[in-house]
Amino acid sequence: MHSRIRISVSLLPASAVLLVACTSNPPEKPNNALATAQQAITLANREVTQKAQSVPLYEAEKKLNQARSIIGNPDATEEDYARARRLAEEATLDARLAQAQAAAYQAQARKIELGETLETLRENLQLEGAE
């Protein structure tokens, strides 16, 4: 029993060596993913009129900041970079959702406004016709 444990434990250094081997390659920073996220946030900021109400935009900005601080860390591992990439990718979709929601809101508001104008005009015409 005792010897079995020792064997399995002895595997650990090997895997550790493997991990070290992986990290020894200069890890690539997910700069493109971060730039894409920044771009999406900039676009969303132009469209979103009620920034205090857009949770996705808030989340986008928060995640991009997290991703930035991860890749800004000189001791960041490849795993950290993978996490930063995921955060940036999520931030991109958060921002796109914020933008799409704002556009949908505006389209809806325009539709309602036009509908009211139409209704008023219709009523006026009916009143005139009844005169």
């Binding site: 990718e89 796109r96 959702l97 799409a100 949908a104 389209a107 325009r110």
Partner: peptide, 20 residues
């Protein structure tokens, strides 16, 4: 998470287009 966001984006974009 990405799947959820894509789905939500699809609905928002569709709502915008339909509204327009």
């Amino acid at each position: 998470y990405m799947a959820m966001r894509h789905a939500q984006i699809a609905q928002a974009l569709a709502a915008e287009q339909a509204g327009a």
